[in-house]
Design a protein around this nucleic acid. Structure first.
Lengths: 114, 114
DNA sequence: CCGCATCCTAATAGATACTG
DNA sequence: CAGTATCTATTAGGATGCGG
């Protein structure tokens, strides 16, 4: 008989660095990341200006920075077309799409419990 | 025939306030919350001093503040015993326990994708 | 149109010392 | 033992203007 089912801990590492959970929270944390992912997810592919107009209150600084981080973290793909004037389009990566369902669970939990 | 399955959006509100997902991320965000929840979850019930010793680098300021917030948000329960010296024990609430499985999914995603 | 550079403010986190 | 109080440092976020 087992006395206690061995539980998976939330964090593996002693100080939290290197913990997969903390990593995820860090990359989607920030003030605008979720909103940005949301708008791209709703539209499949979105231009920079459309993002800017869709997200109330965001500044160019924050939008550009957040997009760059999301791209670096592999959640967002950036495609630039050298037309005149230039056109830049953002889409979610497969990686990001695989994350969405989990975030939706989290969202539901929040709605039910907060 | 339906052209497009209606998708649940990540955020409902236009500026993100009131969005269940952002609320969750806010209450477990911060620098230490996950670690604290982890230690309590691993031990069922934990004293303040044990938390302090278990979490490398945390200060009293941050530990006390974080615990107070987690308690306010209904994730952690605080029980104080008026012995001498005093003993204070922290446990997870049912609410918090229902959140853990989702956080573990997120953790697994992070380990697989980051 | 799509950003970047700079400067500035606000929010978070940490150090240290002290108390019921 | 289990915290507070105060002060400082660090980081995140915002405003504004310029550039390819």
């Amino acid at each position: 008989m087992k006395k206690d089912a061995k539980k998976e801990p939330l964090c593996n590492s002693i100080a939290g660095e290197g913990c997969g959970l903390k990593k995820v929270i860090n990359i989607v944390g920030g003030k605008w990341k979720i909103m940005i992912l949301c708008v791209i997810d709703n539209n499949e592919t979105v231009r920079y200006g459309e993002l800017s107009r869709s997200i109330a209150g965001i500044t160019n600084t924050m939008l550009a920075n957040s997009l760059k981080e999301l791209e670096k973290d592999g959640l967002v793909e950036r495609k630039m077309y050298n037309e005149m004037p230039v056109r830049v389009e953002y889409t979610l990566t497969d990686k990001a799409r695989s994350l969405i369902p989990i975030l939706l669970e989290l969202k539901k939990w929040g709605e039910d419990n907060l």
